[in-house]
Design a binder for these strands. Structure first.
Lengths: 291, 291
DNA sequence: CGTCATTACGGAATGCGTAATGATA
DNA sequence: TATCATTACGCATTCCGTAATGACG
């Protein structure tokens, strides 16, 4: 197979149609240039140039190869450029995991920041539950996760991304919807509360349990569900009340009224950014620096 | 700039993720392979692989470069293949000149043959008058011309392509349209004949002059025109009769009747293929062999 | 006979292979 | 301690540059 140097030489000769001038342009003497071209022709088994002593002309095959050679050289230069951009974090690919609920709070901001910070990078989004995100981070198939706070290994790094309020989600016509201003935790005493699953939505489950225990309030846990939008669907059907992160209020339901709730911690719902400490994706670190 | 050999080495290592195995695949020993990869990384200024003594992993930049490297190698192989096809006449580009009139007789056949003979070649068609075709053949911007017989230089080769009848083109309602069967030359005596220009359409001009002189017939030369379709337009308007190559009958005019003419030579209109003797376009010669 | 590509030849650099070293699990 | 990448070193090849040759207008 030929050499990139041979291609460079050939392009120079093809453009100058003059070995001596081409050699000058290549900052070499003319004999080795002649040899290179001859070598290239031997490698290809094709005559590229017709030389008489007073003129150098391209053969049809030479014309065709000139186009190819230029293409290969351009692609090579682009490759060198592109790989440097990836290595410095200017370009590349960042795979970001998110949970459905987080999409409404943080994801928009994150993507906007990414577009500014690493405009040349490709952002790949994957909707995954927290547990799957942690697994994907571990095997390097995910660069960055958006998860609810949870126990993570020592090789994962975590950073709080946003904090949100909890809102009461009430079916239209429910007694509490008539109340002026914010609700209090005590208002939920004895209410049918649509509760988060202790396994699938452990973070919210424990958050609510803790809030109610602290306030000595005991609602009626009618259903356990893992996803916020499932809970809202049930509220919409009048099957109970719920506490959901404020981002969920972006989802419009015909028969749900959202009301603020007074809590000891005003914004108790956290969302974390998480990534592998040893992740060597430079684009990821460029993005993290801008967050 | 890097080398294609380095790219080949890198692809092997990236695929095996193991220097020793990659070296075996490349039929070389492992140390020079290590050096090549290191050299490639130095050239690029980018780390492509993370080596621990027990594992070789691609960095994100390495992943990006692997794709680029495969692309460059593939393009290089394709280029070598393509240029060989051009040199053997399997592929390439053939520029063919034609006159408007010839388009209807020969061009279809020619293109069909070309598609069979050199399916990989690009056929470029250029409508040019005979004189321009000869000039273009001389400076190599045309590979093949379709022209009326004319004086050509010694470095041009010519081959008869087709012979055609001459047809009488009569305006609808003209007295001769009533005649049964073929016309005779004598029928044109005293007729208003739309004549070919002696300079722009020399071949037809001299052909007709010769035919009428031989038959001792003298029509009235009312107009001199250079192009067949101009002549037919005037016939269509009733401004005279004309003699045109049979291919012209393919052009449908509302008010023209075509009739055969008895001539001493049944098919006096010739169309030639012409090309430069020294044309080094292999695709052209492949095509000519099939014609 | 002058221009310009090719051939001839000597020296430097590149690149492979073998052997030794070093690092990590 | 075994595996596997890197470093060390010697040799063959490649490739450049200078000089000589040759071919075409």
């Amino acid at each position: 197979m030929f050499t990139l140097a041979q291609l460079t030489s050939f392009v120079a000769v093809a453009e100058e149609l003059h070995f001596t001038r081409a050699a000058e342009r290549l900052r070499m003497t003319q004999p080795p240039l002649s040899r290179q071209i001859r070598q290239l022709e031997n490698d290809l088994g094709v005559q590229l140039l017709n030389r008489t002593n007073k003129s150098v002309r391209l053969t049809p095959a030479g014309r065709a190869f000139l186009i190819e050679a230029r293409g290969i050289l351009r692609q090579s230069e682009n490759a060198a450029l592109a790989v440097r951009q990836v290595s410095t974090g200017e370009a590349g690919s960042i795979t970001i995991g998110f949970t459905a609920a987080s999409a409404h709070s943080m994801l928009g901001t994150l993507l906007r920041t990414a577009r500014e910070a690493v405009p040349l990078a490709e952002i790949v989004l994957r909707e995954m539950v927290t547990r799957d995100q942690l697994a994907a981070l571990a095997d390097n198939s995910l660069d960055l996760g958006l998860i609810r706070p949870s126990v993570t290994g020592p090789d994962l790094r975590t950073r709080p991304a946003v904090r949100e309020q909890l809102l009461a989600a009430l079916p239209a016509g429910h007694a509490l919807t008539a109340r002026e201003g914010a609700l209090r935790i005590a208002d939920f005493h004895g209410q049918e509360l649509l509760m988060y699953s202790p396994t699938e939505a452990r973070y919210f489950h424990e958050l609510l349990i803790s809030i109610f225990r602290t306030a000595h309030v005991t609602p009626v846990y009618s259903q356990y569900l893992s996803q916020v939008h499932s809970i809202l669907a049930l509220v919409n059907w009048g099957l109970g009340v719920a506490l959901v992160p404020e981002a969920a209020a972006q989802l419009r339901y015909a028969d749900i009224v959202f009301k603020p709730v007074e809590l000891p911690i005003p914004e108790p719902v956290e969302l974390d950014l998480v990534w592998r400490r040893n992740n060597d994706n430079p684009a990821l670190h460029t993005l993290l620096r801008h967050l």
